[in-house]
Simulated scan of single mutants.
Amino acid sequence: MNLGINLCFAVKRMPDPEAWAAFVRDDLGLGSVQLTFDLLDPWWSEPERGRVISRIRQAAERQDLSIHSACVGLAHYVPAGLLDPDPDARTMARTWWLRAIDVAAELGTRAVGGPLGSMSADDATHPGHARARYEDLVESVAVLCQRAHHAGLGHFLIEPTPIVREIPSTIAQCTQLIADLDAAGAANAAYTLDIGHTVYEPLYGPDATVQEWITGLGRHIALVHLDNTDRHGDPHWGWPDPRGCVDVTEVGRHLADAGLAEVPVMLEVFPRFEDDDETVRNLIVSSVTHCRQALATAATAPGA
């Protein structure tokens, strides 16, 4: 399967593109990365931003790395984004996304995306407000999809989250949103499926499975984030970890059974900022080794 890695592990540790590119190629033996905007903020002014983009592209090219896509990252996941109750804040969130799309195109990626935003507690409890925020969201994402298409990107990737005030947070919401976006002419909208999100028990219950998400979203899944969890949070642990319960071989088999074996899988292990650098490097290496072996097992299983 197409295993790559999200560069969230490099945040605050390997900001130099030459450093993370060499680590990904030499230590991990991977050929594909997903850039996080925590390493390159679209808000930066264009001359400086352009020089950083050039440096990233050159570092990746020297290591024969493909920058598959770019995603929101931690810093811009925190604001309410496209679901903010303030219209000016929503306008600025849309502007940030438009700039992010431009950056992704300049990087030579195939896609851009991430979580879309979070409703306020007040809006979420008022059906009229919630409906208005949803309609605003569909309008904004349709504009962003059009911009992504014109920029030459294959997909605008939407990442469902296990938070009830974020859209989408359920399989039903995902299905409705993709239908509404399709009706608005946004045929290039697709989903990033984060495996750790799919089994969050406090929202989805103890019987929630990865398989129902893969089956429910099907061909609309264009990318997978692979991370480990105990089903009670979103820790983005790696492997091995005695606390985690994500069976990577099982995930691979479900993807293969759904005809999604060729969908890129990005390992998304996000260590604590407090963890020492050598521990983090070892964790990323062991996680890649574990996932590579598990996905290879899934790919060779009968019927795969």
Rank of each mutant, 00 (worst) to 15 (best):
V248Q: 10
D227H: 13
D227W: 00
P47A: 07
M92A: 04
S32H: 07
A294S: 14
T249Q: 15
W43S: 13
H197I: 04
V269Y: 14
L203M: 12
Q173W: 04
D234T: 14
A222C: 05
T95P: 02
N282K: 12
H76S: 10
L177M: 15
E166N: 10
V164R: 13
V263E: 00
P302E: 12
D180R: 11
L181N: 04
P85M: 02
A208H: 01
P85C: 02
L65N: 06
R133S: 10
F37K: 05
D182N: 14
D194S: 07
R253S: 10
G185T: 06
L7W: 06
D230L: 02
H290W: 14
D207W: 09
S286K: 12
T170D: 04
P242S: 06
L82E: 06
G113R: 04
A80T: 00
P264S: 11
R272M: 12
P264L: 11
T229N: 14
G259C: 05
I158G: 05
Q63F: 01
E18N: 09
V248T: 14
D86T: 05
M119C: 10
V24Q: 00
I171P: 07
L157F: 06
S69W: 07
V285S: 06
A298F: 12
Y204D: 01
L83H: 00
I195D: 07
E159M: 09
T36I: 08
T300Y: 06
M14V: 02
N282C: 00
I221F: 03
E61M: 04
L260R: 04
G216Y: 09
A298K: 08
A187P: 03
A104D: 09
I178M: 07
A190W: 03
V210W: 13
I163W: 13
A294P: 03
D122L: 14
Y204F: 15
V141C: 05
P87L: 03
V72L: 15
H236V: 09
G218D: 09
T198A: 15
H150G: 07
V210M: 13
V280P: 08
K12W: 11
L217T: 02
P235N: 06
W213S: 05
R133C: 08
P202Q: 07
V210P: 00
P235I: 09
H225N: 12
T125Q: 14
G154T: 15
H150N: 13
A187G: 13
G152I: 07
L295D: 09
V199Y: 06
D86I: 01
L295K: 02
V285P: 01
L226N: 08
E48I: 13
P240T: 06
R25T: 04
C245H: 12
R51A: 15
I195S: 08
